[in-house]
């Protein structure tokens, strides 16, 4: 299986802080890669650097065989990267529909695909013409994900989609992401909720201090409690 996205020796500085200190990893095509690690390890910065929102100061980022580390954010988005930022990043002044139209960019909304999305997130259909700002937190998160998948994308970057959501909504979200995965999407996802990560992930990357400290199959990490404790400092009991 080929790698859709590879990062080689990527460094990112934000102001005078050296956040990413030589990040190397690959995201295999058609798989879900989970990026785990404690707060401040550089997970969000990694996604933002791939997206061009914080430019890499050194290193190489290759998407589908082309270097993108010098590209602008809109350019990278137009190469087929969908980005779901942290914390319910919807356009609150616009309606649900308008948010999705923005996600589809220059194309018209595809009804079949919309029905598919409504299947996971019926609330979006119910509040189709409401202001996104008036939605609940979970509905905003659904809208944010729906906006990223309203058109097929090569690669989805998803930043902590389950953060702050009720368990029932987390379940719906996991089901949706599984379905997206079944359709052959490639996903790089940051996740603190180990349960969700284990459900979805094929491969796992663990970050600390701006570098990757562990890489392997999700199943191996899920089976090895000692390794989890060492890498993530968590015990599974509290997360099940």
């Amino acid at each position: 299986m080929s790698d859709l996205l590879t990062l080689t020796g990527v460094h990112t500085h934000i102001g005078r802080y050296h956040i990413l200190q030589g990040v190397d990893f690959a995201v295999p095509e058609g798989q879900v890669t989970m990026l785990l690690g404690r707060n401040g390890a550089g997970k969000t910065t990694t996604l933002r650097t791939v997206m061009g929102l914080w430019p890499a100061s050194r290193g190489e980022i290759v998407l589908a065989g082309e270097r993108i580390e010098a590209g602008t954010t809109p350019d990278i988005a137009r190469r087929g990267v969908g980005y779901v930022p942290e914390s319910m990043a919807v356009f609150s002044d616009l309606t649900v529909r308008e948010n999705l139209v923005l996600g589809a960019r220059d194309r018209d909304l595809d009804d079949a695909r919309l029905d598919w999305i409504f299947g996971f997130f019926p609330a979006l259909k119910r509040f189709w013409l409401s202001r996104a700002g008036s939605l609940s937190g979970g509905q905003k998160q659904m809208l944010s994900i729906a906006r990223a998948i309203v058109e097929p994308r090569k690669l989805l970057l998803i930043d902590e989609p389950t953060k702050g959501l009720a368990p029932a909504i987390v379940m719906a979200l996991i089901e949706c992401l599984k379905e997206i995965k079944r359709r052959g999407a490639t996903i790089l996802m940051v996740e603190q909720n180990f349960h969700a990560a284990r459900e979805l992930g094929d491969t796992v990357l663990v970050m600390d201090n701006g570098a990757i400290v562990h890489r392997g199959a999700m199943a191996d990490l899920a089976a090895d409690v000692a390794l989890q404790e060492r890498l993530l400092g968590l015990s599974l009991e509290t997360h099940q």
Binding site: Y83, P85, V101, R147
Partner: peptide, 24 residues
């Protein structure tokens, strides 16, 4: 128009608009 919606999106958060592929 769709153009106006993009303007509103940029007003609210230019980075998100860029991440959707719009050249602000």
């Amino acid at each position: 128009s769709p153009f106006g919606r993009v303007l509103q999106a940029i007003r609210e958060n230019p980075f998100r608009a860029e991440a959707l592929g719009y050249r602000t």
